[in-house]
Amino acid sequence: MAAHRIYSMSFASVYPHYVAKAEKKGRTKAEVDTIIEWLTGYDRAGLKTVLDDKSDFESFFAEAPRPNPDRALITGVVCGVRVEEVEEPLMREIRYLDKLIDELARGKAMEKILRS
């Protein structure tokens, strides 16, 4: 039941929290956007459309232009759960994004966050 609420949440309602988390640690909105672009393939205009349309998380990930195949390299723990062990595909995508934002906020270098 809780997962369903997350899926139907507007991505636009959570996005400012990602940005605030990054900025609180001295990182930038541009870096958050770079992470989203790397993970999903949304460019600046596409991301703006998703935010303006208040797309839910399910649509945000389902309609992602180019999901990065290297996202499977994202491992670690978010909210006490190992990202690579999340079985439900949409929840795994959400946790990938959460993990990348956490890495950004912890000061990790962009090259490492983007698995370059």
Rank of each mutant, 00 (worst) to 15 (best):
M1A: 14
M1C: 11
A3C: 01
H4T: 12
R5S: 15
R5V: 15
I6E: 14
I6V: 10
I6L: 13
I6K: 12
S8G: 14
S8H: 14
S8V: 10
M9S: 14
S10P: 02
F11H: 08
A12F: 06
Y15E: 03
P16R: 10
H17V: 08
H17A: 11
Y18V: 00
Y18N: 00
Y18R: 03
V19G: 15
V19I: 15
V19C: 12
A20P: 01
K24N: 08
K24W: 06
T28Y: 04
T28M: 07
K29R: 09
K29T: 00
E31P: 01
E31S: 05
I35V: 13
W38P: 00
L39R: 12
T40F: 03
T40N: 03
G41F: 12
D43E: 13
R44A: 15
R44I: 07
G46C: 00
L47W: 04
L47G: 02
K48T: 06
K48W: 01
V50M: 09
L51G: 01
D52R: 13
D53A: 10
D56L: 03
F57D: 05
F57R: 14
E58Y: 13
E58H: 15
E58I: 14
S59Y: 14
F60R: 07
F60V: 08
F60K: 05
F61N: 09
A62Y: 13
A62Q: 15
A64S: 15
A64C: 11
A64D: 08
P65G: 04
R66V: 06
R66P: 02
R66S: 14
P67T: 12
N68Y: 05
P69A: 07
P69C: 07
A72F: 11
L73C: 02
I74P: 01
I74Y: 02
T75W: 00
G76Q: 05
G76E: 02
G76S: 04
V77K: 10
V77I: 08
G80K: 03
V81M: 07
V83Q: 02
E84P: 01
E84R: 03
E85Q: 12
E85F: 05
V86W: 03
E88W: 04
P89W: 12
L90T: 09
M91D: 00
M91R: 12
R92Q: 08
E93N: 11
E93P: 00
I94D: 01
R95K: 08
L97N: 02
D98N: 14
D98I: 05
D98L: 15
K99P: 02
K99D: 03
L100F: 01
I101S: 02
D102N: 12
R106D: 15
R106M: 12
G107K: 08
K108P: 04
A109N: 08
M110H: 07
E111G: 11
I113P: 03
L114P: 07
L114F: 06
R115Q: 11
R115V: 10
R115P: 00
S116H: 14
